[in-house]
C-alpha cells in the first residue's frame, strides 16, 4: 500500500474503510472483555488482525451480493453491514438478536444484508455458496457470492468438491481464503506441500491470486477485479489473502504455537495501524480525523453493548418456532 495508491481514492471512501476496520477491532476487543468478565455465554472465535480481509472483500460487493462465513464470522458480518446491536443481542442470547437468540456467535448473519448464517463446520459453506452462485446465474441476476474460509478449510473435501463444481459451470463465486497460517494450532506448512494456496486454482482451471491480506486496499482491488470477472461470467476466482490472527483461535487459546518473533512482526503490521499510517500521508487527513472516527466507533460499540445486555431473553414458546417452514 503506497502513498500513490492512497491518492487514487476519495477521502470519504478511505475513511469509511478505516472506520469499518476499527469497528470490527473495537467490537472484538469489547466482546473479549465481556467473555473474560464471564457475562457472555458460549465461546467465541475472533478475528483481531484480520480486519482488512473482511472489509476489503465486502466493500467490493453490493448489498444484494451474498457472503458465507465461518466459525469466525464477526468481522465478515460487520463488514457486510450487519448491525452491531443485532449481533451483540445475539451474542447475549436475546430474542431480538439477528438469529432470535438461537444461533449465537458461530451463526451470525442477516439475509437482508446479504449474509447467510455463518456456517461453523469448516468448509461447509463452500458448496452452499456455490449452489447460490448457480441460482444467481440461472435467474440471470448480476449477483455474486463471496465465500470466506480459512487455510484449514482447503484440506476439506467440501473445498475441493465445491470449487470444482463452480469451475465446471463458470459460477459467479469468489472463493476467499483467509490464510492466517494456522488451522487452530496447526501451521499451514504441515498440511500442504504448496507454498501458496492460490496455486490450487490451477488444479481446477480457474484463476487464483495471492494478496497481502493486511493491506485493505490491495484486498479491495483484488476483490473488485474478481467480483467483476464473476459478473462478466468469467468466474469463479480463488483469492488467497495472507493475514494473521493476533488473538487466540477461540476463547481459551493462548497462542503458544505462534513464535514470539513472528507474532510481533505481524502485530507491527496489523492492518488498522498500517492503513492509518498511510492515510495520514494524505494532505487532507490527519491523526485527529482518525481519532474522531475511533472515538465515535467506541461510542457505537458501548451503546450496542448496552442494548445487547438488556435485550429480552427468548421464552419457552420461542424454543419451538422455526424448526420447519
Amino acid at each position: 500500500m503506497g502513498t500513490d495508491t492512497i491518492k487514487k481514492y476519495e477521502k470519504e471512501f478511505l475513511l469509511g474503510l478505516y472506520e469499518r476496520m476499527f469497528l470490527i477491532r473495537e467490537f472484538e476487543e469489547q466482546v473479549k472483555f465481556l467473555f473474560l468478565e464471564g457475562v457472555m455465554p458460549g465461546t467465541i472465535h475472533q478475528c483481531q488482525g484480520q480486519e482488512a480481509t473482511a472489509v476489503g472483500v465486502c466493500t467490493a460487493l453490493n448489498n444484494d451480493d451474498f457472503i458465507t462465513s465461518t466459525h469466525r464470522p464477526h468481522g465478515h458480518a460487520l463488514a457486510k453491514g450487519v448491525s452491531p446491536e443485532s449481533m451483540l443481542i445475539e451474542l447475549f442470547g436475546g430474542v431480538t438478536g439477528c438469529c432470535k437468540g438461537k444461533g449465537g456467535s458461530m451463526h451470525i448473519g442477516d439475509v437482508d444484508k446479504g449474509m447467510l448464517p455463518a456456517i461453523a463446520i469448516v468448509g461447509g459453506g463452500i458448496p452452499l455458496a456455490t449452489g447460490m452462485g448457480l441460482a444467481f446465474k440461472m435467474k440471470k441476476t448480476p449477483q455474486v457470492v463471496a465465500t470466506f474460509f480459512g487455510d484449514g478449510a482447503t484440506s476439506e473435501g467440501a473445498f475441493h468438491e465445491g470449487i470444482n463444481m463452480a469451475a465446471i459451470w463458470d459460477l459467479p463465486v469468489v472463493f476467499v481464503c483467509e490464510n492466517n497460517f494456522y488451522g487452530a494450532s496447526t501451521h499451514v506448512n504441515k498440511v500442504t506441500r504448496l507454498k501458496c494456496i492460490a496455486d490450487r486454482a490451477a488444479g481446477y482451471g480457474i484463476r487464483g491470486e495471492t494478496v497481502d491480506g493486511n493491506d485493505v486496499l490491495a484486498v479491495y482491488e483484488a476483490a473488485q477485479t474478481a467480483v467483476q470477472e464473476c459478473r462478466d461470467g468469467k468466474g469463479p476466482v480463488l483469492l488467497e489473502l495472507e493475514t494473521y490472527r493476533i488473538t487466540g483461535h477461540s476463547r481459551r487459546d493462548a497462542c503458544q504455537y505462534q513464535p514470539k518473533e513472528e507474532r510481533e512482526r505481524w502485530k507491527n503490521n496489523e492492518p488498522i495501524g498500517a492503513f492509518g499510517r498511510v492515510l495520514v500521508t494524505r494532505d487532507d487527513v490527519d491523526e485527529g480525523d482518525l481519532e474522531a472516527i475511533r472515538s465515535q466507533v467506541e461510542q457505537t460499540v458501548v451503546s450496542a453493548i448496552k442494548v445487547g445486555r438488556s435485550a429480552p431473553e427468548p421464552t419457552v414458546a420461542d424454543l419451538l418456532t422455526d424448526v420447519y417452514a
Partner: peptide, 15 residues
C-alpha cells in the same frame, strides 16, 4: 461428489 452436490442443493434452495 455427493457432499458438494447436496450442499449445492442447499445453496440453490436458500436462493
Amino acid at each position: 461428489c455427493e457432499a458438494a452436490t447436496t450442499g449445492f442443493g442447499v445453496g440453490l434452495a436458500l436462493a
